[in-house]
Design a protein around this nucleic acid. Structure first.
Lengths: 349, 349
DNA sequence: GTTAGCACTCAACAAAAGGGAGTGCTAACA
DNA sequence: TGTTAGCACTCCCTTTTGTTGAGTGCTAAC
């Protein structure tokens, strides 16, 4: 069967109505509130066809129709009008502009971004911090904290900072630390993590004078700092409790599952790293129902977007909501925030 | 009316039974399952008395009784047998011992501690990181990150680290930074935040040569670093979704309220800083129902404990659960974790 | 191809009925 | 005087039974 223009309009009307009400929508409703002038009986025939095509479904006989996952998929792929949402975007942009001006640290910014997103959309939001293992080392600072304890501060492009405290056997003199600092910075600055290869490491150790052991430990510490960050990728979430707004998700067992994912954050990694690197339409990815890689979210839709701060500094923003979420609004919001992150980063450069 | 031994026993039996089942408990149940050999009729008379005394209440006529807040209060204050829970404590101790061995950073430890606590008790847990504003500055490190951007690393007793990046007007030479570092460290190290008064600040600025502005900014940065930590006190939570285990809390509006508090964390500050400094019985504090300072938790009980790592480095551990929580188990678990934190800290010293 | 009409289905709500757990009270018992 | 058996009563909970109304599919007429 073919999906003609009229069927599309009807499907669209069903999705939009269901988006607002959360109730199955009947033929009479469509007949009354859509611009095509048709009687309910005609609509019924068309709906019957749409059902046969697997785009909508009845929860039970004598109920209205609701969209299926396939229905949503069609809608998202071919029917999204990314028309003027300017008003909303402006507002969101201003809110977050305002917030960004008042913060310095990446962490704070991302936290706030997540909050703004959740507040703005009434869905749950998540943001992964940019992964910086592809990034340039900007600065290493070694200093003594206690007798035999050193503090290594590692700063990379984008001003992400990592601290590690570690112990050394030998008791270093103040000037040793200074020269080690110099050595490390002259040799390592500007390099990506991958570029710090065995050759460089050997060279470093040669030049380190008697302090081979210390250099080794420092490099370990640097590696550790990066690895540990890679392991438990920083993820900031907000608005998980928004899911209670949607009756179809708020019965306690479903809600529990979803919120648990947000609380533990581990599983979110799957969502947030899935698309890293791949280039879709502006990096925006929509998972509907069972399409999501996280089983607990099978009753939700997830929209993610990859932001790129340059130099391979990538992270992901995501929104989780009911399948009947306002996809246009969500996509628009994500784009705004992506732009925001861009601007922010350019300011810092 | 007087609360004789028998009434106490009956109240105890009611509380324990209700703890397990979550259902109002009737006279027949007590008569059957408690060690006092009495008929249900006698129990009924006693229960009638207990109700008159405001310790138990009927949700409706012809239902069993459930404890009131006052009933719980009495139980917690006078009837808690902190008897041998050794089995459970051992287990908890081992679990967390194991976990602690594998971590270095305070943050990780506290996160894990929260997780272990939640897993062990099946309630929600929270831990505030030790506040260090009463603490000694151990070390300040100033270094250049970009042309006009400096990185200040502040380390305090207990090896808590704070980073701040800030801009300066003048372009500092390398040796200026070095001497500033020296200046800052010789003058500030070993002082508590409170001890850095105007006198010291003036003295610092005098000695700073031409770099008064920089010193000012550094001090601002230091203050900011501490203030900002104070503002959004680090709080680690776990097991918020455990509240879904308890039917009396898991209807969606209540659950939402409670989980929201855990998500936003701001309000948890009230719970976690309430008792700081005050010395109760080993610093353990029990809030039952309306007693809690957080309105959204009026249907819960909250148990908090203050841990002290020495040098005024204090933080708080807390458990949130239904009013019928197993207070003994919770108190015991909190004590174990407090001990654990102690040990861990001593290791680090 | 569209529409009016009609019989049919079924969730949702409400009222009615029965069961049962638990109570308070009274009277008898030790 | 304290304890207990007995009994009437209350009221929640569950099941049953209608009743309503939204929505459908089908058919026949336009």
């Amino acid at each position: 069967m073919e999906l003609d223009e009229r069927k599309k309009k009807i499907l669209n009307a069903i999705i939009r109505n269901y988006q607002e009400t959360g109730e199955p929508v009947g033929s009479r409703t469509i007949s009354k509130y859509s611009d095509l002038q048709l009687s309910s009986a005609t609509i019924r025939n068309e709906m019957s066809d749409l059902e046969e095509m697997g785009l909508i479904v009845q929860p039970h006989t004598s109920a209205g129709r609701i969209p299926t996952d396939r229905g949503y998929r069609l809608y998202v792929d071919h029917m999204l009008e990314t028309t003027d949402r300017e008003a909303g975007r402006q507002e969101l942009a201003q809110t977050s502009d305002f917030l960004i001006d008042r913060m310095d640290r990446m962490e704070q910014v991302l936290k706030q971004m997540a909050k703004v997103l959740a507040l703005n959309t009434n869905y749950a939001s998540m943001i992964s911090a940019p992964r910086y293992n592809r990034n340039k080392l900007k600065f290493i600072q070694l200093s003594r904290v206690e007798e035999r304890k050193l503090l290594a501060v590692v700063v990379v492009e984008g001003n992400l900072i990592k601290n590690t405290i570690f112990e050394v056997e030998e008791q270093l003199k103040e000037e040793d630390i200074l020269s080690l600092n110099l050595l490390l910075n002259t040799n390592l600055n500007g390099l990506t993590i991958e570029e710090i290869n065995l050759g460089i490491i050997t060279k470093l150790k040669e030049q380190a004078g008697g302090h081979v052991e210390v250099v080794g430990k420092v490099l370990d510490a640097v590696a550790e700092a990066i690895r540990s960050d890679d392991e438990d990728l920083q993820i900031y979430t907000s608005g998980a409790t928004n899911i209670f707004r949607y009756p179809e998700l708020s019965d306690s067992s479903k809600a529990r599952e979803i919120i648990q994912v947000f609380e533990e954050k581990k599983q979110l990694t799957n969502l947030l790293t899935d698309q890293l690197g791949a280039e879709g339409q502006q990096g925006i990815q929509v998972y509907i129902g069972n399409e999501t890689p996280v089983q607990s979210m099978k009753d939700c839709s997830v929209v993610t977007a990859t932001y790129d701060l340059g130099d391979g500094l990538q992270g992901t923003i995501g929104i989780v909501g009911p399948k009947r979420m306002d996809y246009e609004k969500v996509v628009s919001a994500l784009q705004t925030v992506m732009g925001q992150l861009d601007t922010m980063f350019k300011k810092e450069e």
